[in-house]
Write a protein that binds this DNA or RNA. Structure first.
Lengths: 245, 245
DNA sequence: ATAATCAATCTGTATCTACTAATCTTTTCC
DNA sequence: GGAAAAGATTAGTAGATACAGATTGATTAT
């Protein structure tokens, strides 16, 4: 049992993020200087810089030379399949829920877009995600059965942070992904979907498909979801650092 | 006229990216080691690391401790408003086009979602973007008139790299943004939009709105576009560095 | 031949140092 | 009082160095 050593910059990063979220530093204010933070966390300036840079990239902080690090916003979350829905909702101060509709291990007749990705038999976890009790997303998660032996309904709590499918796959089944491809499509709400989301059948909604791969490029899981609500992205200029317009 | 000094890591980054695009290093192969690259570019390992890290974050490269940097893919771009549509299409080996539908300086009656963002009078550039001649996006770009003095149709070529609105705003009008917010909504294609895109009115399509701000948080431009085709994102694990699941 | 072991290679983490450049604050001068 | 100049503060860039940890490939033993 050798503990996976957490790098200092990660520890510091997590601590600063925790402080941000608990309003220890509030939006608009300035953080202490790099030098000062390096002192309080007992690390070098290079290390504290790495932590702060991550927070800048993520959109929490903005840095200005000569001025300092300013608190930008507290929920720069991008709403992709691979960012926890649970956490995103919690961050907004709302209550996420997850109603388990069904588990099929293995699923008898997966659709074509799933069989295209996986050769092996797959399990389906079918859930309705809610915000403050109102239906928000209808999600099917597909995973190869051999990666989730012992999958059972009790693995999927309806409430609390543990409802995050990403956390479940990561913690309980040790699934890790390194890259993913996500597609957002427009579609007319099918009857079954409309019923779950409480909308008129045929209403234009978003259909999102996401496939995640591990570092050997093997598919780990496939998410398929429907939502009537918009997806919001917060972008920061950091993207342009690599791809100049 | 003091030249804006380009940092070494940026120069090196651009050079490696150029080599990647020109197939100097091809997909799947391994790059020379950090030490070796540091030697060829005559910089320290710290500097070369910064350049490589940027390319990893952008998705071009993947690094594995003990193994090295491997070429991942050559077009990891995300399809957001702020990533050049022109460049994305060109990268796929297709031909982008831009048919100018109209320019209004100022626009007599901007919609509410635009007036909400800008206090001042705004200009509208209305264009139909095509791929291999087929209509793909219908886009309206809104900019405060005072930021684009002398705006005229001749600024918008129908073909070539110069059709990129981002390039035009950046090069000709010196507009720079530092952060942006993008929203993807489902909607039924309005008549006028359906006509331009060559689809049935009422078909479910995507409506994307994007507002870009400069570093003083003033809105710089607002994009509003319709598309019937899906949006694809390629995500890499780097996102999780900040927001653990 | 196969498997285990070891050594070399290469990235990951971390520190110290030095200097530059933008910003902010204080002082000075008119 | 207000503007300009000087100084202090702060992030940005860049280097040298050291060691840890993962991977790879060669060597050795079975």
């Amino acid at each position: 049992m050798n503990k996976p050593v957490t790098p200092k910059y990660m520890v510091v990063h997590d601590e600063i993020l925790k402080r941000l979220k608990s309003n220890h530093y509030s939006v608009g204010t300035r953080l202490p200087s790099e030098e000062s933070l390096a002192g309080t966390f007992k690390v070098s300036r290079v290390t504290i810089r790495k932590s702060l840079e991550m927070l800048v990239d993520a959109g929490y902080l903005a840095s200005r030379q000569g001025s300092g690090y300013h608190v930008n916003c507290l929920s720069p979350q991008r709403e992709t399949c691979l960012a926890s829905f649970t956490d995103a909702v919690l961050r907004k101060g709302r209550v996420p829920g997850a109603k388990l509709i069904g588990i099929d291990v293995p699923h008898p007749d997966p659709p074509e877009d799933v069989t295209e990705v996986f050769d092996a038999p797959v399990a389906r976890i079918h859930r309705l995600r809610t915000v403050d009790g109102e239906p928000e997303l209808l999600v099917s998660t597909w995973v190869p059965t051999n990666l989730v032996t012992g999958l059972a309904p009790d693995a999927f709590p309806e409430f609390g942070p543990g409802q995050s499918i990403l956390r479940i796959l990561s913690d309980r089944f040790n699934l890790a992904w390194s890259r993913a491809c996500e597609t957002v499509r427009p579609c007319a709400a099918p009857n079954e979907v409309a019923e779950h989301l409480g909308i008129e059948p045929g209403t234009p909604i978003l259909s999102v498909a996401c496939t995640a791969y591990d570092d050997t490029d093997l598919p780990v899981f496939h998410d398929q979801l429907f939502r009537a609500t918009p997806i919001v992205f917060n972008l920061s200029r950091s993207a342009r650092k690599t791809d100049p317009i």
